[in-house]
């Protein structure tokens, strides 16, 4: 759907007086019309494993920004800690962003690092393919969204996501996930996890713009994505990712 269609449909919806409340919808339509063109952007994120210090500020900020249930599970973004011992055994756990945790000194560590995770905003999203009602969809600017008004909560998308990025929101009873903070993007702000990351381990950018931090990131680093064999074509790009991560 190109932009003209988008706006035409928009106008149609508003004039049909259907699902949108009058004023705010009108205001947003104007804003989208004037300042934001979905077809002119295509978003992606870069994550540098060597820079992540595992402070968990991204997890905490994401929960605040996106009203994710404040329980120790359900995350739109989370950080995993990998410890690989000299005998090649691997142990992994998810960071607890609510407290700094203990001083961690393990013996016989071969290598150890943190891996931030989030929805990969796949170019070939399996979740969109399987959604029976088309409630989850890819926008022109490359973000996968869930229509919380139409999702029936069948959870097929949660089963189909190879990355565990989706969860059933216990309050709305519909599928929920990272949106790259879509409501911030359109207003020119960064996704909140990128905003608060103290080490710039997360880099955000528009792949359609000539110069963006993401452009430099993908030029200067060797890039890997998660589970490439599944052909989902993630748009979250990792630098210095370890082969043990999946």
């Amino acid at each position: 759907m190109d932009r003209r269609d988008f706006l035409k449909h928009l106008g149609w919806v508003i004039s049909s007086g259907g699902i949108l409340g009058g004023l705010s919808a009108d205001a947003w339509a104007k804003m989208l019309n004037k300042t934001y063109d979905t077809t002119k952007h295509y978003y992606g994120m870069g994550i540098d494993i060597d820079k992540c210090i595992g402070c968990g500020r991204c997890m905490q900020a994401c929960k605040t920004e996106n009203a994710v249930p404040a329980v120790p599970y359900y995350f739109r973004t989370w950080v995993e800690r990998y410890v690989i011992k000299t005998d090649r055994t691997v142990s992994v756990n998810t960071l607890n962003s609510d407290e700094p945790g203990d001083v961690l000194v393990e013996k016989d560590v071969l290598r150890s690092f943190f891996v931030p995770k989030l929805c990969n905003q796949c170019d070939h999203p399996p979740c969109v393919q399987v959604c029976p009602v088309g409630a989850t969809f890819k926008t022109d600017d490359g973000v996968i969204l869930v229509d919380s008004k139409r999702c029936i909560g069948c959870r097929y998308c949660i089963q189909a996501c190879p990355y565990g990025a989706r969860y059933l929101n216990p309050e709305t009873r519909v599928a929920d996930k990272c949106t790259f903070c879509y409501h911030r993007l359109v207003k020119g702000l960064l996704p909140v996890c990128v905003e608060v990351c103290p080490k710039q381990a997360r880099v955000f950018g528009d792949m359609k713009s000539i110069a963006s931090p993401l452009g430099r990131f993908t030029r200067m680093n060797k890039i890997h994505v998660l589970k490439p064999s599944l052909n989902t074509d993630p748009k979250v790009y990792y630098a210095n990712l370890d082969g043990e991560v999946n």
């Binding site: 599970y73 995350f75 989370w78 142990s91 992994v92 998810t94 990355y163 969860y167």
Partner: peptide
């Protein structure tokens, strides 16, 4: 072992 946090359910 380890599961993704959202896999708890």
């Amino acid at each position: 072992g380890f599961i993704y946090p959202n896999e708890i359910d």
